[in-house]
Amino acid sequence: MKSELKAWVYLAPALFFLVMFTYYPMLQVLWDSFFFKAYGQESAQFVWFDNYKRLFADPAFSQAVRNNLIYALGTVFPSLAVGFFLALALMKSTKFRNFARAVFFFPTLVPLIAAAALWIFVYFPNVGLLDYYLGKLGFGPTQWLGDSNIALYSLMLLAIWKNAGFYMLFYISGLQGIGEEYYEAAELEGATWFQRLRYITLPLLGPTTAFVFIIALIHVFTYVDHVVMMTHGGPIGSTNLVLYYIFQNAHEFNDAAKATASTVVSVGVLLAISFLSIRTMERGIHYES
């Protein structure tokens, strides 16, 4: 019983902040989402599901959801793939490879807002870094952020550049954890490079991939700094992501009701994903420990 009490004492500080800034706000926002407070009025009215009705009737919200899905697909898989192949190439430690690793990893360390500041110029039409050098190769100028068909993909490219090096690190450590004996055995069997990749490396990296996948998912739902900095969700809402939509409604549009309702929806989606991913993570933990 002494252990029981001790445990609660040790847990108390962390639990206090966890409840205060994760679980209490989750309940609070759920409760708030059933109220509507008109501009200039003192008290809020209970309105059942009207905020949700308004939310789902808002084309900007459905667009943000759609954009976020495209953004998630187009960012998570490519950056995992790039991270994986970089890891394969740079796993062995040599001077050159260590330098290259540092170059790929460095974007992870810098603030997304600083990266976005630089990439505004990278993407600037005609005179920007990308168009300037593409121009030397004979390509015409592109409206990387001004064309609503392209802008979201431009943000994805930035996100891949920013995060692939991070995932590369996980894959490098994953690769280093695979025992030589597997490959030696495979070589004796006459397995090709691709076969070894397919039947040894990838399966054994399963836990790493699961872990990295979850981190990447968190990234795509919780980082919208580049949207704030580069596009404000435009042109025509083509780069609006759900969190930016929440931010905009709460911070600029005085629409707390829509902001709370959309927060509840996002929390719901994230909860669903976490229930699924906890299983994966658990498996990951058992592998490792």
Binding site: F124, Q143, G146, G234, P235
Partner: peptide, 9 residues
């Protein structure tokens, strides 16, 4: 242009 031009551009 038939794309959106911000003031800086």
């Amino acid at each position: 242009p038939d794309t959106v031009t911000p003031s800086s551009q």
